[in-house]
Design a protein around this nucleic acid. Structure first.
Lengths: 336, 336
DNA sequence: TTCTAGCACTCTTCTTTATCAAGTGCTAAC
DNA sequence: GTTAGCACTTGATAAAGAAGAGTGCTAGAA
């Protein structure tokens, strides 16, 4: 591909992203100072290379998946944020009260709002977290709340109904033993250490140790199963407004997938380990017309993943710019 | 309306619920052992009373909103659950480990699954809850988690970034003061008592009292604003499969509303205080073709609201039966 | 060699028209 | 009070035609 062909591909992608209509040769004459016939010839080349395609023999061209990919990898110029975008994000970025994870969540909400795409925040998943402490809070005679907190501030709480014979004092004592012995243990190993190290101890000291063990095991098991990641999807409904989703069947299918947390987690987090990844079209596994841009971050030991889900016809440069801005600002803030 | 007309209305509603097609006079001949002409005459009466309507002059009849309402209030026979429905719910109902609120949540998930309608669980809202305790858990030198727990076991946690000068010891001491003085305070009054009773005390004792006050205020403010209710909507995408939602615009609008927690909370909880309420069609405020069935429960002091959102053409008897079953079983379980 | 003008051709979209089937309302007779 | 019969209305579906957009290709110009 020579320079002119690259320029043409870029123009086609950007025009299509803006207008959502197949791009005809005439519409690009002015821009390139060439006749439509010449543009058509060049388009034929791009088509034979697989970068653009047409819906029907006599329609304008639209970028193919590899066209978008080429655009993202070679042609796209990172877009400077507009003033109003920055302004909206700054209200979050400048807020010193917010802890990193909340700040990122809120920024992603704003990004979803600005772009009308869906955004995903996958909280620093508990993998790698260490147990900080467990606490038992008695609620009334036969109800307690068990709290588990990790070194990164992830908190899980679970209520339990007690039976007559279970002694709250024994529960609290057990929590103290756990805190003494297991603080600092990787969270996903806690359950097994609970069984092999704590259970034998309490078995000797306590009457209702089976039940007590059961309660702590239960409270910790969400972490063990790595289900503690809190995933949040914002703009689920908003992204459906994108014009490519105009058919009832497509919309339903998409809504269904966006509503499925496990699936979204898979798409956003499980597929590979790259820091930045753009899944275009079929690669997204969401819908052939959909793109997922994901970024992992690791700021001062707190890690997580954010992603934007939108149509294949996405404003790639803008989204990249927004994500860059947010994560950079967070990093800056942390260094202060 | 005489008996026959009521029977006819009942048959029309139930046929329409099953087939989703306007009900013609012929299709009811067999059932009533009458000619189609007679049925037509009776239908004309029902139509003039406003209980049924037709899409076009020559289409079959469909129940109107007041038709459904009459059906729900006078004609519907509560439906016995099928064996498989009971079976699925029992796995939750019989589980002794589950606390009431979790058990109800999980039952509502199953109900959504069984019916393909959306279901809503509005956790016992914090109104009426009393402060049980606040705790500060230090995460590292400049990060803490503040926990607030109520007498009904509702827990909120929030992370805070500390500035250099804030002393964790002072924070913990303040939490102890709060626990001593404010335990038992209605949760929505805590914030103001914090300002007028606690703030003066810590202002004398502590260096960075402004910041400390700010943190506790923040941690408690969600409760003050009654935003602590955790609302959960299940089957958001599934209900879109209902055949009345076959038009892209309608689906988008519905998806949008189901995705809006504040709106759903309004629909399900704010409109009135009845224990059981059926909002049909426009009354639902969700969509003219949609019905919301809501039920409030109060079991052993723990209260909340559950709701089912589905098409106006809903299996009313079945949904009522399912909700009855779940709440009755919960009550039984509690009494044991 | 590169670009352009011109033209036939293809395919979509929109409108119009015709036909079919379902179901009604009304009338007259049982 | 019930029914048979019939004219009428309407939506849904398919077919046919016209308009518009855009292409590919050829032949000639720069």
């Amino acid at each position: 591909m020579d320079k002119r062909q690259e320029d043409l591909l870029k123009a086609i992608v950007e025009t299509y992203v803006k207008t959502v209509k197949p791009v005809g040769s005439k519409s690009l004459c002015q821009k390139f100072k060439l006749s439509s016939a010449t543009i058509r010839n060049e388009m034929a080349v791009l088509e034979s290379l697989g970068y653009i395609e047409k819906n029907h023999i006599s329609s304008g061209r639209i970028p193919s998946e590899s066209g978008y990919r080429y655009y993202v990898e070679h042609l796209m110029e990172p877009e400077k944020l507009t003033g109003s975008d920055v302004l909206k994000l700054q209200s979050i970025v400048k807020n010193q009260d917010l802890v990193l994870s909340d700040a990122i969540s809120q920024c992603m909400e704003i990004i979803s709002d600005l772009t009308s795409y869906a955004s995903v925040v996958l909280g620093s998943n508990a993998e790698g977290n260490l147990l900080k402490q467990v606490s038992i809070i008695p609620i009334d005679n036969n109800k307690i709340v068990a709290l588990v907190c990790t070194n990164k501030g992830v908190v899980e709480n679970k209520q339990f109904q007690l039976e007559e014979q279970t002694d709250i004092k024994e529960l609290i004592k057990t929590s103290e033993i756990i805190n003494k012995m297991l603080t600092g243990t990787p969270i996903n190993e806690v359950a097994s250490r609970l069984e092999f190290e704590i259970k034998p101890i309490i078995a000797k000291q306590m009457v209702d140790y089976e039940r007590i063990y059961h309660i702590f095991y239960n409270a910790l098991s969400d972490f063990a199963m790595q289900e503690a990641d809190d995933i949040r999807v914002v703009g689920r409904a908003k992204v459906l407004e994108q014009p490519e989703y105009n058919d009832a069947e497509t919309i339903k299918k998409l809504a269904y997938k966006l509503d499925d947390q496990k699936f979204i987690k898979h798409v956003v987090n499980d597929k590979d380990n790259d820091e930045l990844k753009v899944y275009i079209g079929k690669d997204s596994e969401v819908d052939p017309n959909t793109t997922v841009i994901k970024r992992k971050y690791d700021i001062n030991g707190e890690s997580g993943t954010v992603a934007v889900i939108g149509p294949k016809r996405m404003e790639y440069a803008r989204v990249m710019g927004l994500l860059d801005y947010v994560l950079n600002e967070m990093k800056k803030k942390d260094e202060k």
